[in-house]
Design a binder for these strands. Structure first.
Lengths: 339, 339
DNA sequence: CACTGGCACTCGCGTTCGTTGAGTGCCAGA
DNA sequence: TCTGGCACTCAACGAACGCGAGTGCCAGTG
């Protein structure tokens, strides 16, 4: 009974604080939510909650504000993901359906997510390492220069120029192309290197040098840039924080410029069905200690190819944000599966 | 004589204000620059400059601040582009030389520019419309689906999926590929459509439908997305404005999210040798009225393929910024010419 | 005629200081 | 276990005020 009400009070505090952005006091609490008790009673509960570290007061004689720990409890036990309205779903579907290629899908997604959540949205390109080779193309630019184009089953295209140690004929380019495709098509990108690197040994001696060059670049493409690209949108939403400027927003903007940091925000996501929420201090990166990150994996099938999510103040509408993130991830998955 | 000194005073005001970010008064002026006259004399000059609209005072009994018109005069007549130090040049060259492909060049460039100028940097991808077709590749994904890959002489690669109305054999794909290349290779992208669109008429009737589909997508690729991609970096530098938060930075961040606005910032650039400076109110877009944009064209040869530049407060180190922008544009041009 | 020193004036900024009011903790009583 | 009452705390607000940087104007001088 007592425990139950305390949790109810915490939920009320989180909800009020999120919507008003002002510390919430005992009086306001009983007014807005019809708990059947007096302010004094609530005050006792609040004192207990503070004792346990779920809420805090910015200064004496101010209302209470949820702590990171408080939000955590709220997310884990007091809230459920809020589904989107049918109208919103329809809008998402229509917006994403208009995309013409992978680039377009990703860019549309990130903008959509930013608009939907009014926060900073981050979308990772379907990662090379988890997708498979659909086709390898070799194009002779000059007799000693090839363009290697790698196409994955997620529609991603990587290209590299290969400088050759010797001239090659159109025929041997075609031969090379066939060989490369034979040993990589359909393979996961993580597996591909072992097959590719064995290639030069099987070739006639006069082709080895050329093959080596091509294989070298191919391996480089497969390994080096396995998961680099991230797109973001909605940074203007950062200004909606009621927060003080340089101390808070500056480091966040700086963090968002670091590809590495962004990747790590989403990188740990592997499961397409569970939504990950990292709140305030739970974030690794120091500049993001005052923000929360809601992310989820997405992909064509059941397994996640990459992550997407949003970043906002810890004072965030978690149920709504989680709903939007989940919905967008699903629709993107559908689009990718269809394409 | 009098005119000369007035201009000197204006220059001094701009320089002091840029470096201190505080309205500059007559006393401080004679102290810091050794003009051989008394503060009272300067005051007269300042009154005249204010009368003519080159400077203004934020409020009575404060020092003077340059107006947009003042900065304009400063840029046009009182300053010269400041060349970079040899060390900086070396750093630029080394940093850019490490790039592996066009994407990498662009991303490195934008980060470099942001770091060099401590401002928001914007770099446009070499525009499709001004570059030429190097190669067209067709890849059969399934019997009724082709991947069209368009490679330009600037290293840019565009790809599209083509859904075919009928099954095609490998042979006819090869045939198609040859035809497409024959009629487009080496042509400017702006010229290409007229050659491509004539293609279906010359083909045997049984190929027409397929050819139509391919040509349709090809034209779409050539026309629709002629100049879309822009990359930016250094938004965190916006926080270095001493400015008040929501009123100033918010609209700027919003503007920077609009691809269209960004494109227009650089879009007018056509000449690779002259640096364009747009100051405050000179900007078309309303949200950027408190900022200045320094931009220049860049390209492999003499002619500009695209633009790059930086955006910052009107209170900006124009000579230094112009120097950095110009230098970076040159080196990028070299890299592109070499690749 | 251009420049200078002097002087009165303006006004933003920072400080101080009192007031206000929301919110709290605690306690005695139902 | 809850409630009403009460004294206390303290951030926020606003008025008052002195400071000082900076100005405009003017009479005087080479």
């Amino acid at each position: 009974m007592l425990e139950d009400r305390k949790l109810e009070v915490l939920r009320a505090i989180v909800e009020d604080y999120v919507s008003t952005n002002e510390p919430v006091g005992s009086k306001a609490l009983v007014d807005r939510h019809n708990l059947g008790v007096s302010p004094a009673t609530i005050r006792n509960d609040m004192a207990a909650l503070e004792e346990e570290g779920y809420i805090a007061q910015p200064h004496t004689s101010a209302g209470r504000v949820p702590t990171d720990k408080g939000y955590r409890l709220f997310v884990d036990r007091l809230s459920s993901v809020k589904p989107l309205s049918p109208a919103e779903r329809r809008a998402i579907q229509q917006f994403l359906a208009g995309a013409v290629d992978l680039d377009d899908v990703v860019h549309r997604t990130v903008r959509l997510l930013a608009q939907l959540t009014h926060q900073v949205a981050v979308v990772q390109y379907p990662s090379l390492s988890r997708s498979a080779v659909r086709h390898v193309e070799l194009v002779a630019l000059t007799p000693t220069r090839l363009l290697l184009v790698l196409i994955t089953d997620t529609g991603r295209v990587e290209q590299r120029v290969v400088e050759l140690p010797a001239r090659v004929s159109e025929d041997s380019v075609a031969d090379l192309r066939t060989k490369l495709n034979a040993c990589t098509a359909g393979r996961r990108l993580v597996e591909a290197p072992q097959y590719v690197s064995a290639l030069p040994d099987t070739a006639p001696p006069d082709q080895r040098a050329v093959l080596h060059a091509v294989v070298g670049v191919m391996l480089e493409t497969l390994l080096e840039r396995t998961e680099d690209r991230v797109v973001l949108a909605g940074t203007a939403n950062l200004t909606r924080f009621g927060m003080d400027f340089p101390r808070t927003i500056r480091p966040v903007l700086e963090a968002l410029e670091e590809q590495v940091v962004l990747m790590r925000l989403l990188g740990e996501v592997t499961d397409a069905s569970t939504i990950s929420v990292r709140i305030g201090e739970e974030n690794q990166y120091e500049g993001l200690r005052s923000t929360s990150v809601v992310s989820v994996g997405y992909g064509a099938g059941g397994e996640a190819l990459a992550g997407l999510g949003v970043l906002g103040p810890t004072r965030m509408d978690y149920p709504g944000t989680m709903g939007a993130v989940r919905a967008v991830a699903r629709y993107v998955g559908q689009i990718l599966a269809g394409a």
